[in-house]
């Protein structure tokens, strides 16, 4: 049911975005996460992020398959999918929100703008409102959107078994980097 709800939501947003036709998008955005503990550092990269930005309204969405996170070690990747995020049950993560004060950004000329993004981040079966800072780089033929923020696994019902608790940080650094081109 959750998948259908997410799909419906994204399509409705898509409808709204497309209707205004100021949509920039990518199907291969990048999201990384980084966990640092005294025992080990763990990094994973996902390059299958679908993301769209409406430059008129500031609406911003991204959705990604959790199984596309690539780890250095195969065992970590298995634990991540099977035990931590349970990607067989919750195959996607999603953000839908808004870049605030979008009218102050001049998309007609190149430049760099600090922005605030607010919206709902869904991981597993938990949706939380987040408010984060980011940077928009306006280029002639694309927009690059970047943000780094912290996610606490426990807040999204990601339970780390006791035997791995010392290997995985309580705060995970998440980096979003998407190069959006006109639709």
């Amino acid at each position: 049911m959750m998948y259908n709800r997410l799909l419906t939501t994204i399509l409705l947003i898509g409808l709204h975005l497309a209707a205004i036709s100021q949509v920039h998008l990518t199907r291969n955005g990048t999201i990384r996460f980084f966990s640092e503990t005294p025992l080990e550092n763990i990094e994973a990269v996902n390059r299958q992020v679908m993301s769209a930005l409406n430059t008129e309204t500031g609406e911003f969405v991204f959705r990604l398959p959790m199984r596309s996170f690539a780890f250095d070690k195969a065992l970590m990747q298995e634990h991540f999918n099977d035990n931590f995020v349970e990607s067989h049950t919750y195959p996607n993560a999603m953000f839908q929100g808004q870049i605030l004060d979008i009218e102050s950004i001049d998309f007609s000329s190149t430049g760099e703008f600090n922005v605030v993004v607010q919206g709902e981040l869904t991981i597993k079966d938990v949706t939380k409102t987040i408010r984060e800072t980011g940077v928009l780089n306006i280029h002639e033929d694309h927009i690059r959107a970047q943000s780094v923020f912290i996610v606490e696994p426990g807040a999204y019902n990601i339970r780390i078994p006791t035997r791995y608790a010392r290997n995985i940080a309580g705060e995970i650094e998440v980096s979003v980097d998407v190069v959006l081109r006109p639709q």
Partner: peptide, 8 residues
Amino acid sequence: CTGFTGTD
């Protein structure tokens, strides 16, 4: 197969 993005 790693999943579905809502479009692909």
